[in-house]
Design a protein around this nucleic acid. Structure first.
Lengths: 149, 149
DNA sequence: GAAGATTGAATCTTCAATCTTG
DNA sequence: CAAGATTGAAGATTCAATCTTC
């Protein structure tokens, strides 16, 4: 199973890497220019918005956005400083903290989400049909399920 | 065309983001642990290996790996310091420099490529068949072509 | 003056060590 | 002592300013 990748294999893989890099840059530039928020910060707000009571533990959030705890502490600092989230000591476990979405955070998220959804639709989904989307979703699920073994 | 994304659309898009993040981390960890090279450095070596005479201008390389000229200067510094590439003043244009793959660079690339190809096959391509790969390649091409308009 | 490349300052992230609470 | 979170140090990248050559 050694040897070169075929042109087809290479196009599938390299296109994946390059498309991600391009779209990430485009989308982040839009979020920063129009809503003064990074992609990482946006991701945290989305996670909070989808959580019960718009509230999650630091560790849970760090895992969700694939960051180390140290890195996430600083990201949380920035979000708190901007007033988009509040940091509250955990009731049940005095070692822990929770982040809660503030009204300002929800507002910013709602605004940014419009921009971001339009980007996703225009630059990604527009090139797919329902069948493509279903096949992609299955592919991503297979890759991710295999990795967590 | 406003409003939420469907579950299918969301799964196609978020899976794309997450799969990329996971595979990038895995593959880079393997390259660093086994070959003492970052993903970015590996990418430069690949670009050089595929270029005529294994030689390319700084700017061309920076574009190819999607970095700014400032950032690429430092990456080139690291590669030169490790002896994987040589920096040579451009004959035709005294303002420019070229990077050339050294024997050590080619050796390191050949070793790292084995690891990396195995990763791509096991973690990505193994979940696709020829038809999937062709459809993916077409999708990436459509997205990228639209962006450069 | 413009293009190619480099440099300094600032930002963001990780790793390892540390602090606090269970 | 272990878990949750924070901090200091180091590394990588970007932006803007600068230097060199065309």
């Amino acid at each position: 199973m050694a040897g070169r990748l075929s042109d087809r294999e290479l196009a599938a893989w390299r296109g994946f890497l390059r498309t991600h890099a391009l779209l990430w840059r485009e989308f982040e530039a839009h979020l920063e220019a129009r809503h003064a928020i990074t992609f990482g910060a946006y991701d945290v707000l989305v996670q909070l918005d989808e959580a019960p009571e718009s509230r999650l533990r630091m560790t849970a959030l760090a895992d969700a956005v694939l960051m180390t705890s140290g890195g996430f502490t600083r990201l949380a600092d920035r979000l708190v400083r901007e007033g988009l989230v509040a940091r509250e000591r955990c009731i049940e476990d005095g070692r822990g903290f929770e982040l809660v979405l503030t009204a300002a955070g929800r507002l910013r998220l709602d605004e940014a989400r419009e921009t971001h959804r339009a980007d996703i639709r225009e630059r990604f989904l527009a090139h797919t049909d329902a069948d493509d989307q279903a096949r992609l979703a299955e592919l991503w699920a297979r890759v991710q399920d295999t990795g967590s073994e």
